[in-house]
Write a protein that binds this DNA or RNA. Structure first.
Lengths: 398, 398
DNA sequence: CTTTGTTTGTTCGTAAGCTTTACTAACAAA
DNA sequence: TTTGTTAGTAAAGCTTACGAACAAACAAAG
């Protein structure tokens, strides 16, 4: 078990950093239970602010950060000193410009110093995972076939996959992020995931215990919309509709994900669409969105229809999606909807039908602002979203 | 113009307090633009925290507040001293209990020391307003008939009404809150309000200039849902559907109102419902929610039908509301929907039809958690919501 | 009646954080 | 060489919250 030892060692050395950091910085974002603020909270927030500035704008000088953040150069210097001591920030030598004055010392996130493990459990037949750098680039991949395993067996598969990825990492881990199907609470407990046969599985805690690193588990569509926000073009208010074996959505409102009163926000697959019947769904209702739009149902319909009718099937599916989304778009005043799933099916007439339906069923004033497009992140959207969750949690970067 | 002078004097003396306070406390809630936190921000937050504790739990001692907030008695004493110097908190003598130890000195918000002016511009034929105390009790009322005035004339009416209410106040004003129909941005500019013929009316700024007090203007349904949260039983995730001349909604997610990317969140009146046609709406589309549910349309249908068919009309309206809300309930995982409007029409078979439709069109797991009820705040819901906005803005109380 | 213990609220000294002010280093331009 | 600008650091000061200690007030036990 040499691999196991290496991995153990790796995770231990990684855990030397994150606990302290994660604690120190998380305070800046989430208020403590009673809501009071102590000086240390302010410092945590400002540390996170410096990291965010570096993360978003890249290499720059302390003075640059001071100008952007409004903090003084003195304070920024102190914060940077602390972050360098923690290994999160590194100096990169002097700026090359020809300008008057003392040359700036460039600093940046220690982008090579940490890596992230991301997992995507949302696909039907495989668990996929990757090692990513802090910029969300994928450095290594791994996957494991599910072969209809459920419950404990599926959980063991997740742990195995994670172990392989942790071993494959070549720098201390900042954390592990997981996008899981189903309903996931804020503590990373998978409350229900029918396809995996999971009920109340404390996935986050299990992985944290196993690997000794910070772990974040969230719904796959929520992870995806975060990825689209960080790496795609999504602004702070967006809805990502993920079409696959089922249909789910992730909502971003004001830059923060929406979870819902029972952590089931975005579960629109089993909302009945329209008032003219439809097919009977596995859930027992008639005319659920999934009966029109899920990939199995859609491919079945396409297989059973003449090639000439292919477009009609896709248009109908797109219209149904538009009908279901119209009240949501109106109620939330959404301006951006993103589709994730098989491009061959979704992009084109289906998406076109969706946006036309949406525009014909909502208020004229908002049509101009409503955009609908495919994600540009492709298959890796959940993996990269999982990385965003880790970055957000342990660095306060968003 | 003696009344005018009195009102002027009143608003001036009121403005001696709020500016400083509002500034000091608002910082605790809204981050400054660049996002940094300085020690003063933390203090503002903690001052607000003490006020919130007093507001929610009423009269208590400094030591009680220390226990609840987690701050030390020392710190609480300092904060209370500052709040007393500002006139926001008063001592009420010693606690009467028979207990060992030094008797506690009771303190409370200076509930009699400030008043609030609230305005409701959302009714069809009248502008209504009131003077309220800090607990949301209505101390005085005033209203003015609209008589189809629009544009500048309607704005003048608002100013007149406000002037009368300011004169009627018997304590310094904490601020003025306004619930306006239409789309209102975060700066209190009414972007569009068709019924009033308003486009880009800077109502908040206008009133602030006129009366020299803090003013908050927001959409009427947003104000209503805040009232329901503070004075009714609504929890932190709720949707309030306001049925009147039009149909609008206010959304509360995680305790904060949702505004939407173009400040038009909740505008569901002109979302098309169902896939089986319907009446043509004034907006040009066919089957908008308002064609079924707005009070004018509903009463017209009731008048044109046999008394025996009355229930059928109401059931149909309720079902249409349910059809429109189902995707929203699913996407946001809402657990609470509140109806506001004429009880005689909405309560009963209509509401029953809505909730049944909702349950039959969304996922089974969430049925048990979904409640739908009428507001208990009646006609004054917007006025009281306007008061909540002022409290929230100037004291940080929510 | 005295003593003991509890609770409240204040005073004093300390630690932490950010700012202002002042300084040195480094370099361009005149 | 002089002047002016920019970067980064150092020292001092102000604000904020905390812990320790203490006085006041009172109940309950002895």
């Amino acid at each position: 078990m040499t691999a196991s030892e290496v991995q153990r060692g790796s995770s231990r050395s990684a855990s030397a950093y994150p606990p302290r950091i994660a604690q120190g910085l998380a305070q800046g974002r989430a208020l403590r239970p009673n809501g009071k603020i102590v000086p240390g909270d302010a410092r945590g927030h400002n540390l996170s602010l410096v990291l965010q500035t570096l993360y978003r704008s890249g290499t720059q000088s302390r003075a640059d950060i001071a100008r952007v953040t409004g903090l003084t150069r003195v304070t920024v210097s102190a914060l940077v000193t602390e972050l360098m001591a923690d290994g999160l920030v590194v100096e990169l030598g002097q700026r090359e410009d020809v300008r008057p004055g003392k040359p700036a010392t460039l600093i940046d996130l220690n982008r090579a110093g940490f890596q992230i493990v991301g997992l995507d459990l949302s696909e039907h037949a495989v668990f996929r995972g990757a090692v990513l750098d802090l910029d969300g680039n994928i450095l290594a991949r791994a996957e494991v076939a599910l072969e209809h395993r459920v419950g404990e067996a599926a959980l063991a598969l997740v742990i195995d996959l994670t172990r392989r990825l942790v071993s494959a990492s070549t720098a201390p881990l900042l954390g592990i992020g997981v996008g899981s199907p189903g309903v996931v609470d804020l503590g990373g407990v998978v409350l229900t995931a029918p396809n995996l046969g999971w009920v109340d599985v404390a996935l986050q805690q299990t992985l944290a215990d196993e690997f000794g690193v910070g772990v974040i588990v969230a719904n796959d569509a929520n992870a995806a919309v975060l990825a689209e926000h960080s790496f795609g073009d999504a602004d702070s208010d967006a809805m990502l509709v993920k079409v696959g074996h089922g249909v789910g959505a992730g909502l971003l409102l004001g830059g923060t994900p929406l979870f819902g009163s029972r952590f089931a926000a975005g579960e629109i697959g089993h909302v009945v669409v329209g008032t003219d019947g439809g097919a009977t769904c596995v859930c027992g209702k008639v005319g659920c969105l999934e009966t029109w739009l899920s990939i199995p149902n859609l491919t079945a319909k396409l297989a059973g229809s003449e090639p000439a009718d292919r477009d009609a099937v896709l248009v109908e599916a797109g219209q149904r999606l538009g009908i279901a989304l119209a009240p949501v778009v109106g109620a939330l005043n959404l301006s951006e909807i993103i589709l994730s799933g098989p491009t061959g099916l979704l992009d084109g007439v289906l998406a076109q039908a969706t946006v036309e339906t949406l525009r014909s069923r909502t208020m004229a004033e908002f049509h101009g602002f409503l955009t609908l497009r495919m994600t540009a992140l492709g298959q890796d959207i959940v993996l990269r979203g999982a990385a965003v969750m880790v970055l957000s949690d342990s660095l306060g970067v968003s």
